[in-house]
Design a binder for these strands. Structure first.
Length: 281
DNA sequence: ACCACTACCTGAAGGC
DNA sequence: TGCCTTCAGGTAGTGG
């Protein structure tokens, strides 16, 4: 799934075909994904105009002129496919739905947006604009926002007995990081993923903050990472996966100049962690 | 309160 | 164009 950079890339890809546009027709092809879709979702989407398209953590949030926000989560394998943009407004030669195409939105401008999700860990919901949504209520700060700063992270991790790897995956501490970018950030910071979060010096934790920002910013600039079945909204491949220093590189030489270490993989909390045992302590 | 672990799904990849 | 096992980007929920 898509972590924050992939979701942001999808949001940017959707903006030209969604912003200010009316949903001429919405089709809901199954009852739900991870959770049931809200009642009458197709009817509540049909005719609505998108007035804002934002992102919070790994959630895409589309404000509608009906007073509701459409919440979208891509789960592990969710994709927002865009088709029909070059066919012209009055030529609706859309391809037939394929396997795992669950929600289809035909925009007034002629584009078709299809939510495809093989593993069905994704989600969609509708809620009143400005109201609290349970999935958003307990999220920590945005890692690229002002509320995520050195003092915050030091305080948030103080006394934590959990490994730093798990702590950074905890969306209540910082929202939007996933397995890949936590591995990459810890590598850049030289911190061993198994180190207890509360036992790391304040200076090293503070150093993580700009590193996390840089990893995410670099990945967004590269259009995210294409891994297995994830692609950008327009079907193009992001290329940040070529920038992974340790993720998925078990057994390869450490990329640090002059380091003789090899990338190791361990399992923490059921997830793979990749790191260099020489560089990361 | 914390923390580790499972479950939810399908599909790709690798070993045989 | 086999069969079986393992693994995958998330996260709510459970149970120690």
């Amino acid at each position: 799934m898509p972590e924050l950079p992939e979701v942001e890339t999808v949001r940017r890809g959707l903006a030209p075909v969604m912003m200010g546009q009316r949903i001429a027709r919405a089709e809901v092809r199954r009852e739900g994904l991870r959770w049931p879709f809200p009642p009458d979702m197709a009817a509540r989407l049909t005719g609505a105009t998108v007035t804002a398209l934002g992102r919070r953590s790994k959630y895409i949030l589309a404000d509608l002129d009906t007073g509701e926000t459409l919440l979208i989560h891509l789960g592990m394998s969710g994709r927002m496919l865009i088709s029909g943009t070059s066919l012209g407004k009055f030529h609706h030669h859309h391809p037939a739905p394929e396997k795992h195409d669950h929600v289809v939105m035909d925009m007034d401008g002629g584009a078709r947006i299809t939510f495809n999700d093989a593993r069905r860990f994704g989600a969609m919901d509708l809620f009143a604009i400005g109201s609290a949504h349970p999935l958003l209520a307990r999220l920590g700060p945005e890692p690229l926002g002002n509320a995520f700063h050195e003092d915050y992270l030091v305080a948030a991790l103080a006394g934590k007995n959990t490994p730093i790897k798990s702590a950074l995956l905890d969306q209540r501490i910082v929202a939007g990081l996933g397995n890949i970018y936590v591995c990459e950030a810890l590598f850049r910071a030289g911190i061993h993923p198994a180190r207890k979060a509360g036992a790391i010096s304040a200076a090293r934790i503070a150093g993580l903050v700009p590193i996390i920002r840089a990893v995410l910013t670099d990945a967004i600039a590269a259009g995210g990472s294409s891994l297995r079945d994830y692609r950008q909204a327009d079907g193009e491949l992001g290329y940040f996966q070529h920038g992974f220093r340790v993720y998925g590189r078990e057994g390869e030489p450490c990329p640090t100049e002059g380091c003789a270490g090899r990338v190791r993989r361990i399992v923490q909390a059921g997830r793979s962690s990749f790191y260099c045992p020489r560089c990361q302590r």
